[in-house]
């Protein structure tokens, strides 16, 4: 892998993708630690894996399918009770702008 350089800008970009607010101190620490962690992975770079298939699932398996049957849904009141805010049967969230997402 191309030796990745972790800069504050990279940290901020990744934090944005991860929807994570980091304080300036956290950004600095993150920058340093990610660099160290990624540096420790350098040995992987040299390893030749051409022709090796990936193992996405540790144990070979085929996903069981579910029959197309309707099961009872959960009581709405109980689900809404766990929400930080709800109104008129809906989960209330900060105003969503059209076209976000």
């Amino acid at each position: 892998m191309a030796a990745p350089t972790i800069t504050i800008d990279v940290v901020r970009h990744v934090a944005k993708l991860a929807a994570l607010s980091l304080s300036p101190t956290e950004e600095e620490t993150m920058c340093r630690e990610l660099r160290a962690i990624l540096a420790s992975m350098a040995a992987l770079e040299a390893l030749d894996v051409s022709g090796v298939p990936p193992t996405f699932h540790a144990v070979a398996m085929h996903g069981g399918l579910r029959p197309d049957e309707v099961r009872d849904s959960f009581p709405r009141a109980e689900l809404l009770a766990a929400a930080p805010a709800h109104e008129a049967g809906g989960f209330a969230v900060p105003k969503v702008m059209d076209g976000e997402g």
């Binding site: 805010a85 109104e87 008129a88 049967g89 809906g90 989960f91 209330a92 969230v93 900060p94 105003k95 969503v96 059209d98």
Partner: peptide, 16 residues
């Protein structure tokens, strides 16, 4: 489904 303008104030309501 995001339901706009149904909630009071600035909220959007979500129906799953």
């Amino acid at each position: 489904k995001n339901i706009h303008g149904a909630g009071s104030g600035e909220s959007t309501l979500v129906d799953y």
